[in-house]
Nucleic acid binder design. Structure first.
Length: 364
DNA sequence: GACAAGTTTCCTGTTT
DNA sequence: CAAACAGGAAACTTGT
């Protein structure tokens, strides 16, 4: 997995590149819409000098940003910092996000609860970004328990926490090492893998036609109960046209964990595609630029991309065929342009944005 | 509840 | 022949 700084760049890049056209939402607003001015927004006069952690999601904070964030809350709460074991604060945002409330309480005492709450308020705005976070999570899933992540070089190790358990007066409860404490609803997809994790193969040999990759597609495939609802009906003849209902609202609510009431706008297919292309380090050979300047790109593993899109939309029956129909609708709106004679190749049109190198760089 | 936007699903036919 | 492309038609989801 990439270092956290790198990911942090990816992330800010992602945020800034995202949903720019109509919404024109700068990152600041993205976070500020939390509305609670005391948890994020700073006093008006300080906003010219934003703290390092502001404007980025905690998951991607560096150690320095984490420290700054902690200091901010220590100060804000007039908390007696002498009670804090700062040797345990040497963690990056990734680690911080994985701390349970108990762990934070263990490290920070009563302030831990406050930190936990604040942290997750910030994190909860990241719903629209969770597909990337999910990918990162899954990439990491196999590799370690986060507190042992030598790459991150955290001094807040499992051992040190264990040790604190016995010595720290704040310690009250058991904790597990990985809590998956990201934004609520971020992982209700319950995937066991995207098929993207560490597949050094990703036959970039120019063809998607080898796409199928059955093992991989199987990984995507659904346990979520929506998947095959229609196949039977199709076989047996009549089936309503168009998208069938999945479940009644009640049933769906039972199956899904809580999700923010209105899923954020900006989850458009072309943006999803663009963002995959903008983060080759994350897309692991799903797609590639054919002509970066011109915005020409190609699906390398079309079915895998479709599955990923399906995951994002919680629709496990997504296929490239359906995805491509949606892509074709973009021709009329000039979000995409046709590329004749080339299979699986598309081109961004004049009504798309955020993919050009200048645009991406300018927002860094 | 109506409406619009953006898909999603299905289908038939064509091209590669 | 299979896979991809094209587009019409209709249904669905979500936000306003």
């Amino acid at each position: 997995m990439a270092g956290s700084c790198e990911i942090s760049n990816i992330f800010s890049n992602y945020i800034s590149a995202m949903y720019q056209p109509e919404e024109a939402q700068p990152p600041m607003e993205l976070l500020a819409h939390l509305g609670k001015e005391d948890n994020l927004a700073l006093p008006a006069e300080t906003t010219a000098e934003k703290p390092a952690w502001f404007g980025e999601l905690p998951y991607f904070w560096s150690k320095a940003q984490v420290l700054e964030w902690i200091s901010y809350h220590v100060e804000k709460n007039k908390y007696d910092a002498s009670a804090i074991n700062f040797s345990c604060c040497n963690m990056d945002g990734y680690t911080l996000c994985h701390c349970t409330q108990e762990q934070l309480r263990l490290i920070f005492g009563p302030l831990g609860d406050e930190l936990y709450t604040r942290l997750h308020e910030i994190v909860s705005v990241s719903d629209e970004l969770t597909w990337i976070i999910d990918l990162l999570e899954k990439e990491d899933m196999s590799s370690q328990e986060i507190f042992q992540d030598s790459e991150l070089g955290n001094s807040c190790t499992k051992e040190s926490l264990e040790e604190m358990k016995s010595t720290n007066p704040f310690y009250q409860a058991d904790f597990s090492y990985v809590s998956g404490a990201l934004s609520p609803g971020s992982s209700d997809i319950s995937v066991s893998g995207t098929g993207m994790s560490h597949s050094p193969n990703s036959q970039d040999s120019g063809g998607s036609d080898i796409d199928p990759d059955p093992t991989e597609v199987k990984l995507f495939s659904s346990d979520d109960g929506f998947a095959d609802y229609d196949k039977e009906d199709v076989k047996h003849g009549k089936r309503k046209r168009g998208r069938p209902r999945k479940f009644s609202k009640e049933n769906r609510d039972c199956l899904e964990t809580k999700k923010s009431k209105h899923s954020p706008r900006g989850t458009h297919l072309w943006e999803f595609i663009r963002d995959i292309l903008l983060h080759p380090e994350l897309n692991e050979g799903l797609m590639k630029w054919e002509d970066r300047r011109e915005g020409v790109f190609k699906f390398l593993r079309s079915e895998a991309v479709a599955q990923l899109w399906g995951q994002k939309k919680k629709n496990s029956s997504m296929t490239y065929e359906k995805l491509s129909r949606a892509m074709r609708y973009y021709y009329k709106r000039e979000i995409l342009e046709r590329v004749d004679g080339r299979r699986l190749v598309y081109k961004f049109g004049k009504n798309s944005s955020g993919w050009k190198e200048e645009e991406v760089l300018n927002r860094k």
